[in-house]
Write a protein that binds this DNA or RNA. Structure first.
Length: 96
DNA sequence: ATAATGACTTTCA
DNA sequence: TTGAAAGCCATTA
């Protein structure tokens, strides 16, 4: 299941994001399993893990531990965040 | 084999 | 709009 999840994430184009649930629906597993796969990712991975956020358009990492880093990486690609730290999935969301 | 654990989601209050 | 509660299901222990 990891390979399938990684494959989908790897297919997400720059400047776009996808939710855990979307990935789960595509590979046919639960949404939590997607997060589980990301947690097991090495630090030096080339996978665009930061393009994965939750269904409400928010980052699922706790502040002070990756949250800021992910937001920065996304903004770096042109993804805009609202005042309350959310991403508009209607505009930046990606559907294969 | 069994039970616990979540980088989640959806469904109501 | 917010938050608790109940689903979810592969990985860990």
């Amino acid at each position: 299941t990891y390979p399938q999840i990684y494959a989908v994430i790897n297919a997400v184009p720059e400047g776009r994001v996808i939710s855990y649930g979307e990935i789960a629906k595509i590979v046919g597993c639960g949404a939590r399993q997607v997060g589980y796969a990301l947690r097991a990712l090495p630090q030096d991975t080339k996978l665009p893990w930061f393009r994965v956020i939750n269904s409400s358009g928010k980052i699922s990492l706790p502040k002070g531990n990756g949250y800021e880093r992910q937001q920065q990486l996304l903004e770096q690609e042109g993804v805009e965040f609202t005042l309350n730290g959310r991403v508009d999935l209607a505009r930046f969301g990606w559907h294969g």
